[in-house]
């Protein structure tokens, strides 16, 4: 079995935290090097594998927020703490926190796109002095889709946070409207220096990035994370390839200079 990258290891579910009806965070036993934005191939034998990004990293655990959207994740959602999932990874490049240190950082996340950047937000919320300014804009379909509600409470005083939902709702008095509208309103101190991370559904990323460019953010200061179908995570299966780039190897996090050339 030497060097067989396809063999998964067993990992115990430490606890499960539901955010919405379909988004649960699974805290999994894991020790080893891993960066926010990297992903694991999580599987239940006989059902299949799914690439899931890491959203929180502890000394002996990783948190994986898993949306119930398919065959594998449907079954994962029936699991309890103490049971085991199979995993391989971590794969991909992940976010490099050093890039954003001592500068202004804006994170714009749409829906589950918040999961892969949560590690970055956590990191700077705990090391707020190592960053000049941090703004967070999160968009969700509705108030019942909001993820990591408890984390927002921790982040909020330190990080300038905007949460918005797509449409007006009865009994909801928060922000309403698409992320792009809040990007327009956002006050950025140093447009030429500020870094921006945009993660979310393909259409949201496209328009949000454009909005930041319109505001004068330099392309080389924009970072995105791509989601693609992936079967192997190690540059073989070909599903995630765009042009000469393998999202699983060189991504999923890309500088926009590179990302803008990645046309499906």
């Amino acid at each position: 079995m030497e060097n067989n990258m396809y063999l998964p290891f067993r990992s115990k579910i430490i606890n499960i935290k539901p955010h919405t009806d379909i988004d649960y965070t699974f805290r999994m036993e894991f020790t080893g090097d891993v960066k926010p934005g990297q992903f694991f191939e999580v599987s239940i034998p006989k059902y299949g594998e799914a690439p899931i990004s890491v959203n929180e990293i502890g000394t002996d655990y990783v948190d994986l927020t898993i949306r119930k959207v398919g065959k594998v994740t449907d079954v994962i959602h029936t699991f309890y703490p103490g049971q085991y999932l199979f995993m391989r990874g971590p794969y991909g490049n992940g976010f490099d926190v050093n890039i954003y240190k001592d500068k202004e950082l804006i994170v714009a996340a749409g829906g589950t796109g918040l999961a892969p950047v949560k590690g970055i937000i956590d990191y700077f919320s705990n090391h707020i002095d190592s960053i000049k300014k941090f703004s967070l804009i999160c968009g969700f379909k509705s108030s019942s889709d909001i993820l990591f509600k408890e984390s927002f409470k921790q982040w909020n005083p330190k990080i300038e946070t905007t949460v918005t939902v797509d449409k007006e709702e009865e009994g909801y008095d928060g922000n309403v409207g698409l992320i792009t509208e809040y990007v327009k309103k956002l006050e950025i101190e140093n447009i030429r220096e500020a870094n921006v991370i945009v993660v979310g559904p393909p259409i949201m990323m496209k328009f949000t990035v454009q909005e930041f460019i319109n505001k004068g953010i330099k392309e080389e200061n924009i970072w995105v994370s791509y989601e693609r179908k992936m079967c192997c995570g190690i540059g073989k299966c070909g599903h995630c390839k765009i042009n000469d780039t393998y999202i699983c190897l060189e991504g999923p996090v890309f500088n926009y200079i590179k990302a803008k050339e990645l046309l499906d």
């Binding site: 030497e2 060097n3 067989n4 990258m5 396809y6 190690i234 540059g235 073989k236 070909g238 393998y246 699983c248 190897l249």
Partner: peptide, 13 residues
């Protein structure tokens, strides 16, 4: 090229 070099060696290949 893909199975032995790109992103590491594929065990089965």
């Amino acid at each position: 090229e893909i199975y032995l070099k790109n992103g590491g060696e594929d065990y089965y290949y």
